[in-house]
Design a protein around this nucleic acid. Structure first.
Length: 133
RNA sequence: UAAGAUAAUCGGACAGCCGCGCAUCAGCUUGACUGGUGUGAGGAAAGUCCGGGCAUCAGGGAAACACGGCACCGGAUAACGUCCGGCUGGGGAAACCCAAGGGAAAGUGCCACAGAAAACAACCGCCUGUCUAUAUGUCAGGUAAGGAUGAAAAGGCGAGGUAAGAGCUCACCGCGGCUUUGGCAACAAAGACGGCAUCGGUAAACCCUGUCGGAUGCAAGACCAAGUUAGGGGCUUCCAGGUGUUCUUUUAGAGCAAACCGGAUGAUAUGAGGCGUUUCUCCCUCACUCCAGAGGUAGGUCGCGACGAGCUUAGCAGUAAUGUUUAAGCCCAGAUUAAUGGCUGUCGAUUUGUCUUUGACAAAUUACAGAACCCGGCUUAUAGAUUGUCUUAUAUG
RNA sequence: GGGGGUAUGGCGGAAUUGGUAGACGCGCUAGACUCAAAAUCUUGUGGGCUCAGCCCGUGUCAGUUCGAGUCUGACUACCCCUA
């Protein structure tokens, strides 16, 4: 599974409209790619967010790096193709143990994949009006 | 040894596994590709408080006004509100530190409350004279020694002097200008003089004097691609030379384009515009476009990554800031959801505890913080470590 | 990245040239009215202490001044603008 970076604000907003799982240390959002991204086979996209609430520029950068390191390992195994994943840092992301964060991230991805697969079947039949729920 | 003062420097190291940005080379599958090589955060990258470069608004010069910054003296610098050296004032036992530190005899304003009075001092008191009702009185004058205030009371203090007083006189101190000497200067020292009628404070109040400053900031701005509507006045078309752009067999050639520059040509008007305001002057622009002006948008490339107010070392000049090619070496991050990292181990440093003895072991901690157009400063944040010089105290010799 | 602004009791919001900080409104406390509540009326309302008083208080720290909410400098927090 190859992973590419999300770069446009548009896709971040789309992911936020999709599904969301909250764990200790990480918030995960995910949605299927739009057709404009023209994804290659067997790849998914990952974006990272650290808000100004977390701290100054130095701290926000380190949160993003940590999330990037985790996402690289987790999505390589558990990622579904043509999905935009957005990882959002929380106030304790830096303090928690790396192993602990890794296990939490695996759980979150698995959970959101179940939600996405259910949505994927329904998407073929009808429009995705119920995304906000 | 202890307590300080000050000037600087550094601000973790190594290894393993897995990754990232940029540059460049190679490959073919021609791209969100693969592989190799090189390179990749700071002393503050921060705050955005000053000063520049650079860009746009076409522009240059002069005068007046307006607005804003700065202000002991001399120097350094591209420039500065910065830096260096001095002066003066203040703090400290000392090393040393701190200061927006011009002008209050150009003018205006303000100085609450209290107080007789807050800047043109006579309310009480003191003294002299006068009047008659002989009093704790009236009127006229002199007087800043005394008066519960206040942040501040009209040079201070002592002696002489006087009706009472007073720089009225004198000594010392303060102040002022003058002369001489030293210093580039700020200023200092000495001398004699003035009597202080310049006599309070405030200029981070207006202001005056001197001096400096056009405005806006890289989301500046340039180019490419793409591209919508409407009103009024006015209504000529053309040229591929430059420029742009596309392609190729790339010192060039061919094609395309009238948006720009340039050239040719026509009509109308005698004007409009020009970076705080006004005036003057030079000059420029527009006349085939001008005025008015609604809505929409999606981006890309350059700017932007180094021959530079460049970096390192030594020499020379200078008290120093700094200057200098004199000599040698170097080319040193460039993203745009924003690279420079994640995990592990070993060592180092600090603190605490234990054992026992000046070493082991264990635990904890290992800062502030992340370039975004680029430089020179200032300010603020910062675990800990190192070095030089100086002061004071104590002890010993 | 760049540019600008604001900060005063629990909340909104005054305070003229620097001169007694907290006007005014909302809220809150206590009381009156009521069987009870609302509305209404009255009273109080920044904090601390050794409480007839004194001290500290205008985001924080300095400076100028006799005196600072106001003037000057540096910081902190929050907000806005910028294709």
């Amino acid at each position: 599974m190859e992973i590419f970076a999300l770069k446009k604000r548009k896709y971040f907003v789309e992911a936020a409209r999709g599904y969301k799982v909250v764990t200790n240390g990480i918030v995960l959002q995910a949605a299927f790619c739009s057709s404009k991204q023209n994804p290659t086979e067997n790849c998914c996209f990952a974006g990272f967010t650290a808000t100004k609430k977390l701290g100054k520029a130095n701290i926000r950068n380190r949160v993003k790096r940590r999330l990037r390191a985790i996402a690289r390992e987790v999505l390589a195994k558990y990622g579904i193709k043509n999905v935009n994943y957005v990882f959002i840092g929380r106030h304790n992301t830096l303090d928690l143990d790396f192993e602990y964060l890794y296990r939490k991230a695996v759980k979150a991805v698995e959970e959101i994949n179940i939600q996405l697969s259910g949505d994927g079947e329904m998407q073929s039949d009808k429009t995705n009006n119920d995304c906000d729920d």
